[in-house]
Design a protein around this nucleic acid. Structure first.
Lengths: 185, 185
DNA sequence: CTTGCCACTTACTTACTAGTAAGTACTATA
DNA sequence: TATAGTACTTACTAGTAAGTAAGTGGCAAG
């Protein structure tokens, strides 16, 4: 399954997280794919439709991730989650939530609503991991699970952004610090 | 001193942090100010020149902030620093570093270089506060001062972004958690 | 009083944006 | 073999972007 429609979404995802939502155009996609501008409009009538599809792709991916890590321990789940962002950083991208948050006032209501759904999926899952880890004693941290989950998400999200400016080392130190904070003695 | 040139920089700063660098235009500024497009080009020949000027304004402001909080204790300095971001969040903006980081690949080299200078000023100052707090015992935290400083900056920066999506409550919980993490027992 | 500079305006160009209307080649089905 | 739908292309529009060349009004120094 490598249809034009899927390719469009994948390229759009790449462009959004590399250059930002307002810096990519249908023309950028048609330059990469061997299709014309209008072909993209055929699959996604408006840019907002494409934006929503990109978030849907991420929802699909995170659902798959959550199922995949289900058998792992809580510390392993946290590490696996942070590794997603490490890959983002290595590929010199940023996380979708961060880019769209900074462009928030310029994006369509449909994109905003879909992004809220995505953030809630990630937030609820990581809160659950924190709760479970606290109960089992496999994770030790200060504050309540929900706040800790939010703190982890914000830290690692911004660390990927900071790596754009300060290089990969800044990302690694933040990643290690996050792990240390949930393995306290 | 409320010259046209200064007004342009202030409005550009507002627009960049509200809508993103690639979503604001000279026309947006000339609509707010009672001047024409070309007047802005007179003061700032290219958009990159204006971008650099906006970061210079922030460097000026952070220098002023650092001098202002010099007599305060380390915990007070941290709180004052976090309060800057609280104001950003209340005004429904995001931090300059975050927006420009997500647009990194689309911004001019001059803007990139100037942003590195700005981040280093903030990073070095907060690292110094952490070192001093650790030495005096006024701050207690895990890890080294530099990593802790980076962790605080990334967390609060992304918290302002997250507030755009999840509302002000998410910001407050992250802010409180950061303070708790440097006042451990 | 005129020369020259500052801070603009007027009027424009080139390039690109999202989006659309109409047409076409191909494929599957009745 | 006709019909209809899918997945496009061709060719276009209206709007906006950054940027520029040339002109203007006011003011200050010589």
């Amino acid at each position: 399954m490598n249809s034009t429609k899927e390719s469009i979404v994948n390229i759009a995802d790449d462009l959004i997280r590399r250059r930002g939502y307002n810096a990519f155009s249908y023309n950028d996609i048609s330059k990469v794919l061997a299709v014309k501008n209008a072909a993209i409009h055929y699959h996604f009538p408006t840019k907002s439709d494409l934006g929503v599809a990109v978030i849907d792709l991420h929802i699909q991916k995170i659902d798959h991730f959550i199922k995949g890590v289900a058998p792992l321990s809580e510390p392993e789940k946290v590490e696996a989650f942070l590794n997603i962002y490490e890959q983002i950083q290595i590929n010199k991208k940023v996380c979708l939530v961060g880019t769209l948050a900074t462009d928030w006032d310029t994006i369509d209501d449909k994109i905003q609503q879909k992004l809220i759904v995505f953030v809630n999926i990630v937030g609820d899952w990581l809160t659950g991991v924190m709760e479970e880890g606290l109960k089992k004693g496999s994770l030790t941290f200060n504050g309540d699970p929900q706040t800790r989950a939010m703190l982890i998400i914000t830290s690692i999200m911004a660390a990927a952004q900071m790596a754009k400016i300060m290089g990969p080392a800044s990302f690694q130190s933040v990643k290690n610090a996050i792990i240390n904070e949930v393995n306290r003695q």
